[in-house]
């Protein structure tokens, strides 16, 4: 019998996580546009509903109703599925994120996450690198030079930053002594890792910006040179999937930053879930702020930053962390 209950609970959790994530993604669209507007002394969307609050609904409707165009000569099957990959990846990652301390119902403790993998961190890294397929294949399948260029850029960029993303987490694992995200949160019971690993945090933050193709690293999309890059040829719901993917991944990355560096749901006074939400939002808001602030980097600068600065920095950081850890323990 227990497994049925467990299954139901799991289903409920999945539904809740999906709902919340989609809700957040939609909300993020509005938040981003509003915030960007204010950062640029504009209002942002203010026409649909009170204060433009219904803008995400309007956007969604619009995208739903748009004609679904498949370019001539496109590889139809790949063209159809590529956007799904992009949207799927952050959803999968969300499966290993612990949102709160365990829920207690009577005697039963229900962990507030979908799957507490003991290799959660590796799972995250493995799945995250899949999103490159969405970008590369979508651009390639469109049979358009702009898309092709966008996806080539996207692939190169994702691969480059994948490395520093992964390596920047090694010190975290070293400190926590576990790949499980729950353990990592628990390891920050006394202090969040950002205090001891600011370099790691910075690298992870920058790399995740690059991973989610956001300014200043949005070269695969580069509207003014590539007219949208890998998704130039997409329209309607398929385009919406790319769009959704980007925003969900922003939120999920925010959650991961919270888990890895900000101590997860831990915090005084407020309930754990609230703390978690607040910490999760820090990263996306900073992403948006960055978008309002920094211009796009040049492609060679992007590559140099990844390979010549971030990567060596990661390695140095790992060695340093190892050394200090050895010293402290011995």
């Amino acid at each position: 019998m227990w497994w049925i209950v467990g299954f139901v609970v799991l289903l409920i959790k999945v539904a809740v996580v999906l709902g919340v994530l989609f809700g957040f993604a939609a909300g993020m669209v509005l938040v981003e546009r509003k915030l960007l507007g204010r950062l640029q002394i504009r209002y942002g969307p203010n026409r649909v509903g009170p204060f433009g609050l219904l803008q995400p609904v309007a956007d969604g409707l619009k995208l739903l109703l748009k004609e679904d165009i498949v370019p001539k000569g496109a590889d139809r099957i790949i063209f159809f599925f590529a956007p799904a990959v992009v949207a799927l990846v952050p959803l999968l990652i969300a499966a290993v994120v612990p949102f709160s301390s365990d829920l207690k119902i009577g005697e039963t403790r229900i962990p507030v996450l979908i799957a507490d993998l003991n290799v959660g961190l590796l799972f995250f890294l493995a799945v995250a690198s899949l999103s490159v397929y969405g970008v590369a294949l979508g651009g390639w399948a469109s049979n358009s030079k702009y898309s092709m260029l966008g996806s080539v850029r996207g692939a190169a960029q994702l691969i480059s930053y994948e490395l520093s993303l992964g390596l920047s987490l090694v010190p975290v694992v070293m400190l926590a002594g576990s790949f499980s995200l729950v353990d990592i949160v628990n390891a920050q019971a006394e202090y969040p890792f950002i205090l001891v690993q600011p370099v790691s945090f910075l690298i992870f933050f920058i790399s995740s910006m690059a991973e989610s193709n956001r300014l200043p690293f949005d070269l695969p999309e580069a509207e003014n040179e590539l007219i949208g890059g890998f998704h130039t040829e997409y329209s309607g719901m398929r385009f919406a999937l790319y769009f959704l993917g980007e925003y969900i991944s922003m939120v999920v990355l925010g959650a991961l930053v919270a888990v890895f560096f900000l101590g997860g749901w831990r915090g005084p006074v407020l309930p754990p879930l609230a703390w978690f939400l607040i910490k999760t939002m820090i990263t996306p808001v900073f992403f948006i702020w960055t978008r309002a602030t920094l211009p796009r980097v040049r492609y060679d600068q992007l590559m140099q930053l990844g390979w010549k600065i971030l990567l060596p920095l990661c390695l140095v950081n790992i060695i340093a962390t190892g050394g200090i850890a050895l010293l402290v323990r011995s």
Partner: peptide, 11 residues
């Protein structure tokens, strides 16, 4: 940009 956030929009 942060300062702009607190200015009145000119739209």
């Amino acid at each position: 940009t942060l300062k702009h956030l607190f200015r009145k929009p000119i739209t």
